[in-house]
Simulated scan of single mutants.
Amino acid sequence: MEQLNRALALHRLLLEYRYPVSRAVILERLACSASTFKRLLELLRDSYQAPIVWDRGARGYKYDTTDGRFTLPGVWLSESEAFALLMANRLLQDVQPGLQQQGLARLQARIGDLLGPQWQGQADRLSVESIGRQYVAPELFLPLVQALFARRQLRFVYHATLHEALPRQVSPQRLCWYRDNWYLLAWCHERAALRLFALSRITEPLALDEVACERESGELDALFESGYGIFAGSALQQAELRFDPSAAPWVRDVQWHREQCQTIEPSGHIRLRFPYADQRELVRDLLRFSGEVEVQAPPSLRHAVISAMRAGLKKHGVEEAVVQPVSQ
């Protein structure tokens, strides 16, 4: 880091002087030896491609550019700015594999140039793990994005289940990244309503000439404000849950819902209360805490969780609840 700081000081010195800077001035201003100065020159020239040359006539060093100025890539980034760029670059690589060959490769190269070698070397210290990701072919992803930004209607075949494939014509509104998977929020012209489509279930996309109908941003935002998870709806119910103390590390500091109400009892039990519109995703999340959570309300959610637990026990040939809590 000290060497980098001195290299930065040399860079500023070359920009500060209107004329080539002599070796004597550089050694004095940087308070360094001739050998250290030589290493700084090599660092700037080799690692940052800085065009520093020796002007024989003026007997000094300068930048060999038209205006005598040069910008060091990445050097001016703060740690927080460099972290943001590093994370963005990592997400570009991992969120949707395969897009590097479809236009993002040059963008990633430009980010790398901006970061410079001193920050690029830190990229391996960041890791993005996508667990449970549903595969979306790159050749499918790009046409969807193009239709979204071109504001054109889209036709595709949607595989809602293994045995059901229906043609849909939609007006794309938003592309959503949720729990490591891509979803398309669109106005379905057949249903005359907003619908959410998993990209992994879309095939044969075709952009149409018809202009997409626009929905208000407030309507799109409101679709997910109250519901739980990716499933939206307007008919809300209140989930009331009570978790055992053993589940506290995985429940206490987690935001289940933006309107949740959490209470910690003297015994260590945690009570959670929040609204939901569709119970499917909520039931799956609660099954992770089988044996450590009690659904106290509403009865429909309690029954759904009990039925799912019984089905799981039956699948394993177990007639009685002998399941060990997950966190134990």
Rank of each mutant, 00 (worst) to 15 (best):
L72F: 09
L10S: 03
P275R: 11
I52Y: 09
F141C: 06
G227D: 00
S327E: 03
S327L: 13
R284Q: 15
V318F: 14
P299T: 08
A82M: 09
Q102E: 09
A297K: 06
Q279L: 12
R179S: 08
L208D: 00
L162P: 01
G132D: 14
L115H: 07
G60K: 08
F274A: 06
G98T: 05
L10M: 11
D244W: 02
Q146N: 14
V157H: 13
D221R: 14
A247T: 08
L162E: 09
V75I: 14
D46F: 09
S217K: 12
I111G: 02
L15Y: 03
S217I: 04
F156V: 01
G317V: 04
Y228F: 15
A9V: 10
A160T: 14
Q96S: 09
E259V: 04
E190Q: 13
L162M: 04
E216G: 11
P97G: 10
P73N: 09
W187N: 09
R252C: 06
W54I: 04
T263D: 11
A207W: 02
S226D: 12
A84K: 15
R201S: 03
E204H: 08
V318P: 01
A248D: 08
F37W: 12
Q101Y: 07
R284S: 15
R29F: 06
L206Y: 06
E16M: 10
L126H: 12
W177R: 14
T263P: 04
Y178A: 01
Q238I: 07
D209P: 00
Q3P: 05
E16R: 13
S80Q: 09
R195G: 10
D209S: 08
W187L: 11
R133W: 07
L194T: 14
D253H: 15
K315T: 05
Q100R: 13
D124K: 14
Q3W: 03
Q255N: 10
R201N: 02
A247F: 10
R179Q: 15
R90P: 00
R191I: 01
L184C: 05
G229K: 11
A34K: 12
S300G: 04
E81P: 02
L10K: 06
L166K: 15
Q96M: 14
G229Q: 08
I306C: 10
F70C: 04
G68S: 05
K315Q: 12
R258L: 11
L85Q: 02
A192P: 00
L13M: 12
Q146D: 13
A137L: 08
R29I: 09
D244H: 12
L10W: 03
A88P: 00
A88C: 06
F289G: 02
E164M: 14
N181P: 01
R215S: 13
T65D: 03
R125D: 02
R201A: 05
P138C: 02
S290W: 08
R155E: 13
A222I: 02
A88I: 04
G112I: 03
R125M: 03
Y19R: 15
L196R: 11
W119C: 01
A212P: 04
A147E: 00
L140H: 06
L148A: 09
K315G: 11
V145D: 00
H11K: 13
T65Q: 08
L223T: 03
L107D: 00
R151L: 14
C32Y: 07
P20V: 01
P51E: 10
H316F: 13
Y183V: 03
A297F: 02
I270Q: 07
A160H: 15
L115N: 07
L287V: 12
P275M: 07
E79T: 13
T65C: 09
L27A: 11
A247E: 04
T263N: 12
